[in-house]
């Protein structure tokens, strides 16, 4: 418990906030890695998931990607890549993106899949183009699940960006790695608390956004509509949508 107090004392000591090895610059770096990894993954995963969800083709691809990527030990993959590329920002970003693609893909795909096919059929029958169906029917209705994927991806990336501290970069994980290397467990614990706090804050924020984007008319309490009946958990849905954890 003394260790815990010491760790909090470290975090709240103004001397540790700024400066080259301070909390703030490392937080900024951590957010930078997270943002870059997510951005790359977003550009790949979301359009692909929307395409598969809209056309209904490639469902097996989604489950293959989500379940096999989950098995890859990210930590090992990052070290392996770095041994070939050398230290740098981009190997980390690539690995973080690899990590974030499956939840984004699964979220976008499952979101579209959860939209009532009758609603889409009717939209087409009254003369909406495929783009209009995608952007004004499917995406708005799928947004909560799409954001669920974003939320899951963000958490994983924040957690995994911790190992940046082990491969010559900084981020909040640097406190952890330094602390472990120097057997200074106060600093290690302080780093752990900071990373956990960042993850919790990001998750809370995204959970809030996720609630806000539920389209009016389909929010809870108006469940008489058949179109948003929650789908039964099937093996596939669980395998694709279960939260993943890599770091």
């Amino acid at each position: 418990m003394n260790l815990l107090f010491a760790a909090f004392a470290f975090i709240f000591d103004p001397a540790n906030l700024l400066g080259e090895r301070g909390i703030l610059p490392r937080l900024v770096d951590h957010l930078l890695y997270t943002g870059l990894g997510l951005a790359v993954a977003f550009v790949i995963g979301i359009p692909l998931g929307l395409l598969i969800g809209h056309t209904g083709k490639g469902r097996n691809f989604v489950i293959a990607v989500t379940s096999s990527f989950r098995a890859i030990p990210t930590f090992g993959l990052l070290l392996f890549i770095i041994l070939f590329t050398g230290l740098g920002l981009w190997p980390l970003v690539v690995v973080l993106a690899i990590l974030a693609v499956p939840p984004l893909l699964a979220g976008a795909y499952s979101g579209l899949e959860s939209v009532n096919r009758d609603t889409v059929d009717a939209a087409r029958a009254i003369g909406m183009t495929e783009w209009q169906i995608l952007f004004s029917v499917e995406i708005p209705l799928a947004l909560p699940l799409i954001l669920g994927g974003v939320r899951s991806a963000t958490l994983q990336v924040i957690a995994t960006a911790t190992i940046a501290g082990y491969v010559g970069l900084t981020g909040l994980g640097r406190f952890l790695i330094e602390g472990l290397a120097l057997h200074n467990y106060t600093i290690a614990l302080a780093g752990a608390i900071l990373v956990a706090a960042l993850a919790l804050a990001a998750d809370g924020l995204l959970a809030l956004v996720q609630k806000l984007v539920v389209p009016r008319g389909v929010s809870r309490g108006l469940t008489r509509s058949r179109s948003i009946r929650p789908k039964k958990p099937t093996g596939f849905r669980v395998m694709a949508m279960a939260p993943t954890k890599e770091g």
Partner: peptide, 8 residues
Amino acid sequence: FTIPSLAL
């Protein structure tokens, strides 16, 4: 679940 593994 949200707490990163290394932190835990």
